[in-house]
């Protein structure tokens, strides 16, 4: 990582990279974007296929409560990773389990869980922020690229590697289980296992991305690049690749742009806005093209 930062600052001095690249945190943020962007895009396609957009929103908001719990238990406010991971994972597993076992309509159920996550998270977080550090509130809600440490990148890299390897082996089966669970079961695939595995992957990626995009908007990053790519591709393979590309591009541009333009808007907001503008362009092109 140090060599990368050295190279970047040399490049900035030489003039072919902009000044923003001489900041260490910027390099860290860009590397984080490169690690998490492809996964968000790739998993986002499955989220769209499985109609789990609302579910991933709920998990994103659960991050609020998870962070608050972590800080309450004594973790450092800029890295409450254990509280965050444990709460979000248990939240996601329970939500999916209740969905499978009850007759409550899906959107109602997710709505309830999401409201509880948000209310609980807001209450705990406000309490914690007053006690400890009020500035952390903005970082948690909307992301902060300034606080990505080398250790964060290591954890991020490992989890992304884990998910990519997992996805290589299970993508087809997860997709088949969502399109036709019966066919999958007859083929001998344990559809419950693949469903839960997918839920866990989504949660892991959400946790990884919370630092960059913030808890409020992280669910959106699983959704918008995929929705954009869907308008532009003709087959599943290119759908996944384009979605990953768009997500990564949004993260990179969304991180760099406020620095370049010297705007002090949180990284999460700028990433989502960039992503949404891609979606807008694709939609308009589609509508105009149809005429």
């Amino acid at each position: 990582m140090d060599t990368l930062r050295l190279l970047a600052s040399q490049g900035a001095e030489a003039g072919w990279l902009s000044e923003s690249f001489s900041y260490a945190f910027m390099i860290n943020a860009l590397v984080a974007a490169l690690l998490v962007g492809p996964l968000l895009g790739g998993l986002g396609t499955l989220v769209i296929a499985k109609r789990l957009a609302f579910f991933s929103e709920a998990v994103g908001h659960a991050a609020l409560t998870g962070i608050a719990i972590g800080v309450l238990l004594g973790e450092p406010p800029e890295n409450p990773i254990i509280g965050l991971f444990c709460f979000c994972m248990i939240f996601a597993l329970l939500l999916h389990f209740v969905r499978n076992r009850t007759a409550v309509p899906y959107d109602t159920l997710v709505g309830v869980f999401l409201a509880v996550a948000l209310a609980g998270g807001a209450a705990l977080l406000m309490y914690v922020a007053r006690k400890i550090n009020i500035h952390m509130l903005e970082n948690v809600l909307f992301g902060s690229i300034l606080t990505i440490t080398d250790f964060d990148l290591l954890v991020l890299g490992l989890s992304c590697l884990l998910i990519i390897v997992g996805l290589m082996f299970t993508f087809n089966r997860i997709l088949l289980a969502s399109i036709s669970p019966d066919i999958a079961k007859v083929r001998g695939y344990n559809t419950h296992f693949y469903d839960y595995l997918f839920v866990m992957m989504i949660t892991l990626v959400t946790i990884a991305a919370v630092k960059i995009v913030g808890a409020v908007l992280v669910g959106a990053l699983l959704l918008i690049p995929g929705a954009t790519a869907r308008l532009m591709t003709k087959s599943m393979g290119s759908f996944v690749l384009l979605s990953s590309f768009l997500a990564t591009l949004s993260c990179i541009i969304g991180t760099l742009l406020p620095m370049e333009l010297k705007w002090s808007i949180p990284s999460g907001a700028s990433i989502i806005l960039v992503s949404a503008s891609f979606f807008l362009i694709a939609t308009v092109t589609r509508i105009v093209g149809r005429k």
């Binding site: 238990l73 004594g74 973790e75 450092p76 890295n79 409450p80 990773i81 254990i82 509280g83 991971f85 444990c86 994972m89 248990i90 597993l93 329970l94 389990f97 499978n100 076992r101 419950h192 839960y196």
Partner: peptide, 25 residues
């Protein structure tokens, strides 16, 4: 299904509480 989920949740909580002291301020 229920048993597996309960087991997983318990596992997560145990691992979490074991690792917590390493990340305390």
């Amino acid at each position: 299904e229920g048993y597996w989920i309960a087991f997983l949740c318990a596992l997560i909580l145990i691992v979490g509480s074991l690792l917590l002291p390493f990340n305390s301020v």
